[in-house]
């Protein structure tokens, strides 16, 4: 059981070393000639105006909030789906109630305009 994860750990190490190996090889062969114009932020060839890190649209956060709800739902959903064949009719009714509450939330968010990109 645990030995299954040894390979995943090893693979993670290889996958993490690989990009740094690429950086190292490139570091040895690439030219390094910094220049104030070169290290300026790209903005269509003009001098950049103001900061990039500005206030952002609230819409992104609304979507993120709804996402959190549905992501937690999928965590509950997977064990239910895997064990479905061994469970009785009660599991179906239960999941219908659970999903019903969530769909109610989705409809509420929809009616309130949280899913409208303005």
């Amino acid at each position: 059981m645990l030995s299954d994860y040894v390979f995943i750990g090893l693979f993670a190490i290889v996958a993490a070393i690989f990009p740094f190996a690429g950086f190292a090889v490139s570091y040895l062969v690439r030219p390094k000639r910094p220049d104030p114009v070169k290290s300026d932020v790209y903005e269509c060839g003009m001098k950049p105006i103001g900061e990039a890190w500005v206030q952002f649209k609230v819409q992104y956060y609304l979507y993120a909030l709804i996402f959190v709800i549905f992501d937690v739902m999928s965590v509950f959903l997977f064990p239910w789906a895997v064990a479905y064949h061994t469970l009785g009719l009660y599991a179906l009714v239960e999941m219908c109630i659970f999903l019903g509450i969530l769909v109610g939330g989705l409809i509420y968010a929809w009616r309130k305009g949280a899913l409208r990109w303005v």
């Binding site: 690429g22 490139s26 690439r30």
Partner: peptide
């Protein structure tokens, strides 16, 4: 791509 210079903005 490997032998190209890596530019990095000063503001990054």
């Amino acid at each position: 791509l490997i032998i190209k210079e890596n530019t990095e903005p000063a503001k990054a």
